[in-house]
Amino acid sequence: MKSLEELKALREKMRAQVNMRENVGGEHTRVVVGMATCGIASGARPVLNRLSELVQEKDLTDKISVTQTGCIGLCQYEPIVEVLEPGKEKVTYIKMNPEKAEEVVEQHLIRGNVLGKYTLASAGI
């Protein structure tokens, strides 16, 4: 059984790292996933987890934070992912799935190319 002792050991290991992270300045990009009933029922959880995993795997946690939000009123387009970059217009991706989320990380978050084909604007509303 996993013990709390392991957590204590982890804490000691991380204390030094936390100090380093605090020194990283700059503005954060926020990736926000809708997690109300509409989002969850349409499959937002695997999208949220894939985004979060990739941001960690690719060591982007200093620049990008993945968070969740409620319903923004576009339930028919869920799962919705919003990308908020400092100084740029918000990009709203609709009808996401884990595979599309991977593309968003690779193309948009890493290379800066907005994936027009998945955005709300592409739905013509």
Binding site: K2, L7, L10, R11, M14, V18, T61
Partner: peptide, 23 residues
């Protein structure tokens, strides 16, 4: 209990802690 051990400076959403919680 986790919070008591980690204190204020180590957040639950840091990758290492998130992985520990899952395990």
């Amino acid at each position: 209990e986790f919070r008591e051990i980690l204190g204020e400076d180590i957040p639950f959403n840091s990758p290492e802690i998130a992985a520990y919680i899952m395990d």
